[in-house]
């Protein structure tokens, strides 16, 4: 595409005599090669190539700039601020002593209370992720495989709960799971239980409600991750003698694992940072990092501890995402071979 031809015979002589009506020494036409005529092979040759090569980069940068600025202002700077805050120390009455020490870190990491909070956060994350995957997988598998003309509607229905605020949905679950809730009233009315089941104000309730709240995310992530599933593969396996369960175990499950993995990451991360459901259904008995950070920052006015907990939460995210990337790479290697060049 380079306009400068090495052969002068094929390049038109540069400044078009009829077009350049100005002074003969005017370099005008040669300096603006984009305006039409081919540039002079020797004089203006390198100029157009250089501008053309640089301009896409400039345009891209100009387009990226607003986003970068927004990220810088709303994400990077606060993050730096949080990191800075975590190195301060708190004194009584919400006073923050500006310093540069790891005293707050030592305090938090030396306290069994905070370790319990971290433990419960991870426990909740793992339980919610497992439950969400188990209940979402069949739905996602059905939606990915069905050829029904209602498919779009069904997908929309599966995702519809997202239209309702998770606060409202959590209140709904409180009405269902509470001691006077639908479940306990029903069981009691049927004479199946003497004392109400403890379904709310504890981890069980938080897991149940969170599972429902994260299902739409998991289903969407799985459907988009099930791209490798081709009905012909299942037919081929069946024709080779595999009964349905074997087809599922040997073909469907391995091929859907990447989608399951993505959904797992999404749900785990969402539930690690979830605040509303643990706070409302936990009834003050479920302590996770998100609620703890809120309490430290707003109630106890201990911003350095809140900042330290935020940094710890970020560290957990980092570990989880590294694990995800590693697992994804391992899964992908099964499809493309162990780093071998393609033939």
């Amino acid at each position: 595409m380079t306009a400068d031809s090495p052969d002068p015979a094929h390049a038109r002589t540069p400044p078009d005599p009829p077009a350049s009506a100005g002074t003969p020494e005017s370099p005008g036409p040669a300096a603006t090669p984009g305006s039409g005529g081919a540039p002079h092979p020797s004089a203006a040759g390198p100029a157009p190539a250089a501008t053309r090569r640089r301009s896409p980069g400039r345009v891209a940068f100009a387009l990226l700039l607003p986003g970068l600025l927004a990220l810088l202002l709303t994400y990077a700077l606060p993050l730096v601020w949080v990191l800075r805050m975590s190195l301060n120390e708190a004194e009584d009455g919400g006073v923050i002593r500006q310093t540069l020490s790891v005293a707050t870190f030592t305090h938090v990491l030396g306290s069994s209370h905070y370790w319990n909070v971290i433990g419960q956060t991870l426990e909740l994350g793992v339980l919610v992720t497992l439950c969400t995957l188990v209940v979402s997988y069949p739905v996602a598998l059905f939606l990915a495989r069905t050829t029904s003309r209602w498919r779009s509607l069904l997908v929309a229905l599966a995702v519809a709960p997202l239209l309702i605020s998770s606060v409202a949905r959590t209140f709904g679950w409180m009405a269902i799971l509470g001691t006077q809730g639908v479940v306990n009233k029903t069981l009691d009315g049927l004479g199946l239980t003497d004392t109400p089941l403890h379904l709310a104000n504890n981890l069980t309730g938080v897991v149940i409600a969170s599972t429902e709240i994260y299902m739409p995310f998991a289903i969407l992530a799985m459907i988009s991750g099930f791209g490798r599933l081709d009905p012909a593969l299942e037919h081929a396996a069946a024709a080779l003698g595999a009964p349905r369960r074997t087809v599922f175990r040997r073909i469907v499950l391995p091929l859907t694992l990447p989608g399951v993995l993505t959904a797992a990451l999404l749900v785990f991360v969402l539930s690690l940072s979830g605040y509303v459901t643990p706070r409302l259904i936990g009834g003050g008995r479920v302590f996770v990092l998100a609620t703890e950070i809120y309490d430290e920052a707003i109630t106890a006015l201990n911003w350095p501890v809140a900042a330290v907990l935020s940094v710890l939460l970020l560290a957990v995210f980092g570990v989880v995402i590294s694990l995800y990337l590693w697992a994804q790479k391992a899964l992908e290697a099964r499809f493309t071979g162990p780093g071998e060049a393609r033939s």
């Binding site: 081709d230 012909a232 593969l233 037919h235 081929a236 396996a237 391995p254 091929l255 499809f335």
Partner: peptide, 8 residues
């Protein structure tokens, strides 16, 4: 027609 080979 698509061969339907198991990619994994």
């Amino acid at each position: 027609q698509s061969y339907a080979l198991f990619p994994h």
